[in-house]
């Protein structure tokens, strides 16, 4: 028992204090030789509680004097619940008491409830890594930069692990797998790209160009990962396939305004060649038609604002061969 306590002595000041008290009491017992008959009961000495309790201030000063150069890993080798006598620093947890002070670490159930990571302090983690290093393979030289990693390994799988102290180590959220891949890393032509975007819907982020597939319908992570991979494969191949009903796509279904197929082109050519009807659909012979084409496409594709409208106006003016000096502004 004594030796056991001595092991902790250095850091465990309270333990030490207890021991010293114990020792002193035994020594007094040894000194008594005769029992004295006391006719009158001895006067009870009122000992102030304050003297007995060991304040944290005292412990701190003591600690500062005798901080050991001992290895923390040997003291706290694995995960365990909080112990106030082993942890060598003051801690406070819980609601403020009447004096407005948070309860200290001794006899504090709140500190016991929460999980701690005292077995994973940064130096210890570092030591773990050092120990594991001999099992690792060397990082490939070709993958030094982030760009190279993205180029060679475009698919990114994101899962979450959960760690807490509870009777079960299973966490339902850990099954969710999200698979991310850049659209540009897939080999697609115009049709396939259009189709894959329609199939993806809001799973595609046009700002970053990333496709995100989240699989969470299967009970385990492995199954979800397989499912996500299957989805990506299926998407890719379905996008390349040209179904017969896709021939029915009209101008309304177009994802952008195509001037060459629009009514605008038709009206320009027929207006220009009026009163005769245009013989062919070419527009190259009309002066400034290309400028006009760009202006109309911009106006409709990029949205209408003062800038695009003015551009359109200038284009129409050159097509209609009208001039006005726009010197103002």
């Amino acid at each position: 028992m004594l030796s056991l306590i001595r092991r902790y002595k250095v850091i465990n000041t309270i333990g030490t204090l207890k021991i010293t008290k114990l020792l002193s009491s035994t020594s007094t017992d040894d000194d008594i030789e005769f029992r004295v008959l006391q006719l009158m009961p001895p006067e009870k000495k009122i000992v102030s509680k304050r003297q007995q309790t060991v304040t944290e201030e005292n412990i701190l000063t003591k600690l500062r004097n005798e901080i050991p150069n001992q290895d923390w890993q040997t003291i706290w080798p694995a995960a365990r619940s909080f112990h106030p006598d082993i942890v060598p620093f003051p801690l406070q947890q819980g609601y403020k008491n009447k004096e407005g002070v948070h309860p200290g670490k001794h006899g504090n159930a709140e500190l016991l409830k929460i999980p701690n990571f005292l077995h994973l302090t940064p130096p210890i983690v570092k030591r773990h890594c050092e120990a594991l290093k001999k099992f690792c393979t060397k990082w490939p030289e070709q993958l030094e930069t982030d760009e190279a990693c993205v180029k060679h390994f475009p698919v990114e799988v994101i899962t979450s692990d959960y760690c807490y102290s509870s009777p079960t180590i299973r966490e339902p959220l850990a099954r969710i797998v999200s698979l991310r891949v850049k659209l540009s890393s897939l080999h697609l032509d115009t049709h396939a790209k259009d189709k894959i975007l329609r199939l993806l819907g809001d799973r595609y982020n046009p700002e970053t160009g990333m496709i995100t597939i989240i699989a969470d319908r299967c009970p385990t992570r492995k199954q979800n990962l397989d499912y996500a991979k299957y989805l990506l494969t299926a998407l890719y191949h379905v996008s390349w396939r040209f179904e017969p009903w896709e021939m029915e796509k009209s101008a309304v279904d177009m994802e952008y305004y195509d001037w060459d197929k629009s009514k605008s082109r038709e009206s320009l050519t027929s207006m220009y060649s009026w009163p005769s009807t245009p013989t062919d659909s070419s527009y190259e012979y009309i002066p400034h038609a290309t400028e006009y084409k760009i202006a109309v496409s911009d106006l409709i594709n990029k949205g209408e604002d003062l800038d695009s409208l003015n551009k359109y106006k200038q284009a129409v003016k050159s097509v209609l061969n009208l001039k006005f000096d726009d010197t103002v502004e």
Binding site: S264, S267, L268, K313, V316, K317, V319
Partner: peptide
Amino acid sequence: GFELLDPFLPIC
């Protein structure tokens, strides 16, 4: 309306 009138001259 745009298809009917195009090309028109917008004047602010």
